[in-house]
Design a protein around this nucleic acid. Sequence first.
RNA 1: GCGCGUGUGGUGAAAUUGGUAGACACGCCAGACUUAGGAUCUGGUGCCGCGAGGCUUGUAGGUUCGAGUCCUAUCACGCGCACCA
Length: 950
Amino acid sequence: MEYNFREIEKKWHQRWVDQQTYKTVEDENKKKFYVLNMFPYPSGAGLHVGHPLGYIASDIYARFKRLQGYNVLNPMGYDSYGLPAEQYAIQTGQHPAITTVNNINRYREQLEKIGFCFDWSREIRTCDPEYYHWTQWAFQKMFNSFYCNSCQKAQPIEKLVKHFETEGTDGLDVAQSEELRFTADEWNSWDEKKKNEVLMNYRIAYLGETMVNWCPKLGTVLANDEVVDGVSERGGYPVVQKKMQQWCLRISAYAQRLLDGLETVQWTDSIKEVQRNWIGRSEGTEVQFKVKDSDTEFTIFTTRADTMFGVTFMVLAPESEYVAKVTTAAQKADVDAYLDATKKRTERERIADRKVSGVFSGSYAINPMTGDEIPIWISDYVLAGYGTGAIMAVPAHDSRDYAFAKHFNLPIIPLIEGCDVSEESYDAKEGIVTNSPREGVKPYVNFSLNGLTVKEAIAATKKFVKENNLGRVKVNYRLRDAIFSRQRYWGEPFPVYYKNGMPCMIPEECLPLELPEVDKFLPTETGEPPLGNATKWAWDEANKQVVENSKIDGKTVFPIELNTMPGFAGSSAYYLRYMDPRNNERIVSEKNENYWQNVDLYVGGTEHATGHLIYSRFWNKFLFDYGYSVKEEPFQKLVNQGMIQGRSNFVYRIKDTNTFISLDMIKNMDDVTPIHVDVNIVSNDILDVEAFKNWRPEYNNAEFQLNADGKYICGWAIEKMSKSMFNVVNPDMIVEKFGADTLRLYEMFLGPVEQSKPWDTNGIDGCHRFIKKLWGLFYSRDDQFLPEDGEPSKDELKAVHKLIKKVTGDIENFSYNTSISAFMICVNELQQIKVRHKAALKDIVVLIAPFAPFLAEELWEALGNTTSVCDAKWPEFNEDYLKEDSVTLSISFNGKTRFTMQFPAGSSNEAIQEAALADPQAQKYLEGFNVVKVIVVPNKIVNIVLKPKA
RNA sequence: GCGCGUGUGGUGAAAUUGGUAGACACGCCAGACUUAGGAUCUGGUGCCGCGAGGCUUGUAGGUUCGAGUCCUAUCACGCGCACCA
């Protein structure tokens, strides 16, 4: 019987659907295992062959765990809200709701073909009201929370209000936008509106006037991780800095926990390092500087407190609120001009053109260590968003300050013994401190750092600053609060309405607040959200419902927020929802949450390291604080699959002709123009000439210079897989031609899962041949069913158990490529054995089941089983079958094998060594030498170290 | 500039973690069968050399009886962060 994959795959796919083979039900009697793939944006282009790589890898693992007896949750869904989905809709001129459904259907169809064990009954879509109900719910929960630093968790905002009512800000240790001070009396005297404004300073989801990344072309603000090199990640459009009122998430409050949590998860060091960098913890000191002849004081942050004696000027960020306070009348014109110029520059220009610029404010600060009057400058090399937006400049020991000082001719005072700062600054944090204070200068304070190491000096200064009330020790994080508003249509609406300009939450029982239909959903360059076009978008407070805008009266009917949430909102807690996707009462029931706990294995690309993987960790920690999640970290083990690149093919047209020349006939590359050619009409780099003529009209009467074999050889290159390079390989096509099992095997056989590699359809024959060989162990060409009843032979058992050992170990390490090699070897070995037994082949079928599930089902049935192979038991490895009767020992001198010896199995190293030295043949070689050492590695080699006799 | 990672045949890659480098597969070569076909099967295939033999894991050193694996230096490539004070 021929291996007919089309029939086999069709048959089993249908049976899986009919019998709900992959439906997962919570079962307290079984240990759980939660496998998760990063769910896809359903983009318009459909899947190419690179997309399923991670899904196949996790599918193999999920099936393996199931065979080991675990209750496996392996769900799939769609991240269908957000920029990419909307951009695609805009580009194709369709409504995003329509394109999204179409794209999802196409994805589903493609995924179904590959034979994944997804439990589709748990499918979720982030744009589904049933789903985003819980996104909105979490947002409201964050709005109604503050972060308590001393107890290290989120708490209900009422608790904070109570504190204000009785004690004001006294004894408060909470995360906040800016440090406020007020008494209980003051708080109690404020009206509702004022109180609410103050509370915004503490809420975890808050409305903030912040500097944002504004992308005019996309018509929306972007989060930091959505901006790459000063342009938008999606589309590559320019981004400018703009001050706007936006919803923000106080993710910075969780910075330390996000850092600490990394120690508890099994992720690669590199991705942990990326997150550590992104969080950017830095321990330092905040110091207050007084402005001369003024009451103004401002605070700076430094990690080099030891260099305070070398501060020769101060620098404020252009956006700093102190700029106005320190600018003198004489300097005002210059300062305004500078501020104007900086504002006009885009982020990209700032990065591209990093020349020194700045302006003197006219004021001076007093150095608290020396009493020196030092000029205050304004420059855009100081960032408003980090620390306090102001620095003390120590040009001798900071390269940026140095460049600035050189440019504006400001003094440079070296503070480390023996350092040379004539050409460049000395930035290293090592050496012995000097000039602190300088010799011969009357000390301003009773404090000296001279003679200490840098490390000691930092500690000493921290202590001094604290004791003298000059400042305090402070830990800063680079991690910014996440900007949570988008001026776009295709996203979760905020469940918020505005009453007297004050945001109010739509009652929880009224959620979800559904996205309204609008005619015009296109974004605008000015930032007017498209939801402004909705006619029914007002909140009737009394009747608790959405009504027409025309009814807004400001007394009982109010406008609803027009912004929508960003793409990462919906993807931040989806793994929780899979545990209980149809629950209308709670994001996930306690029972299910306690059963599934968190994701055991998460598979996805590295590109989410600073986006999704930070946001969802934050989101989960927040829910954890309230007991909605039982594990602090959502993803226990993370595997990052590599990217599949495309392998493009080229044809070479002789310049100014319509003649194409085979690569091996080209004498001079300058005479030809390489042109991308569709890889689907090229096989093993040989062009299908006829197909090429039909490919495009302009090649209909193309002429060819073929090589001696009459072939046209194409050139090739590794490039990104994309339509424009004609190198996209579609999985449907592979499935059609070779079957899903072959596709699955080949994708894994290509190389390690974590590694990026080019796709090359050429090698797929080997995997297809292997499947056919395996099939050949069961069926002869003349339709005989070959496996026999009875006891397997020793050789069979040996081959099979070698495989069990190898595959079991490999799957745990994700070394699927070597597993498949082992299968190939095993099948070859079994082919040599004339009579094969069902009992031995049964184990092989179970072993191959995770890799080639359709084939496994068919063979499992052929062996007489009536249940799915998915419910089989993973075979157990038995060492005994691998034991040899004897071990062969090769004995070598100087790396050369001289003779071999046989020993009984299980001989000890000592026994082997003794016997080897006693061997008469060996002794022939030993004449004239002293034996220094004998190294015995059983089953491998014996090395005898010799020294000539004196 | 700082941080992380990777270098093995014509190609994708293995190597029991310090023990016969190149498993397995593609490609290539030779052969068999065949209504010459993008089918199947058999054998060969790291490099140099007719040969015996020699060389070989980016390069140069080191540790070791023994190094692809450990250490030092160096080069190349890839990724991440980048005025973060």
